[in-house]
Amino acid sequence: MSVAGLCELCERPDVDHTCDRCGRLVCDRHWDDDTGMCVECGSEVGRPSDRVPSEDMPDGVDTYRF
């Protein structure tokens, strides 16, 4: 999708995407097709392939108790 404006990360004029998480307008260079987010949000959230599998986590880490 082509949108008007400048990339909010590098100020390039060829903006093609809007981040699904933060709403930033970003160019292809700062867009991650796999997550549908800008690279900034992708690095904050972490891509699924970057996350540690739950079987490698110590017991109780993935469990919340209230």
Rank of each mutant, 00 (worst) to 15 (best):
C22M: 10
C27P: 13
G46Q: 14
D34P: 00
E55C: 02
D28L: 09
C41G: 00
G23Q: 08
A4Q: 12
E40S: 14
H30N: 09
Y64M: 12
R51W: 07
V45N: 01
M37F: 15
D28K: 09
E8P: 04
D16S: 12
C41Q: 10
D50S: 12
D33K: 13
V61T: 15
C38T: 00
R12C: 04
D33T: 03
A4N: 01
L6G: 03
V45G: 01
V52G: 01
S54L: 15
C10K: 09
D50P: 01
R29L: 13
G46S: 07
R12K: 12
R29G: 13
C27Y: 06
V61M: 12
D14F: 03
E8R: 01
S43H: 08
D16I: 02
A4R: 08
S49W: 15
Y64P: 02
F66E: 10
R51Q: 13
D34M: 04
H30S: 02
L9Q: 05
V52E: 10
D34F: 03
M57Y: 00
C10N: 07
S49M: 05
D50Q: 15
S2R: 09
P48K: 07
P53Y: 04
L9F: 07
Y64R: 10
D50Y: 06
C10A: 07
P58V: 07
C38A: 03
P13M: 01
G60E: 02
C41K: 06
D16G: 05
C7D: 04
G60Q: 09
M57I: 09
G46W: 01
C7F: 03
E40V: 15
C41R: 12
M37Q: 02
G23M: 07
D62G: 15
E55S: 10
C10M: 01
L9M: 07
M1Y: 06
D16V: 09
R47D: 06
P58A: 03
H30V: 03
G46P: 08
Y64K: 06
H30F: 12
F66S: 11
D20N: 12
L25K: 14
D33P: 15
C22R: 00
C38V: 12
E44N: 10
P48V: 11
C27S: 07
D50N: 10
D50C: 06
P58E: 11
S43N: 09
H17F: 13
T35L: 15
L25F: 14
S54R: 11
G23R: 07
R47C: 14
D50F: 10
L6Q: 07
V52I: 14
C41E: 01
M57G: 00
G23T: 01
T63S: 11
E11N: 03
C7T: 01
S2I: 11
W31L: 02
L25P: 04
V39H: 00
S2P: 02
E8K: 04
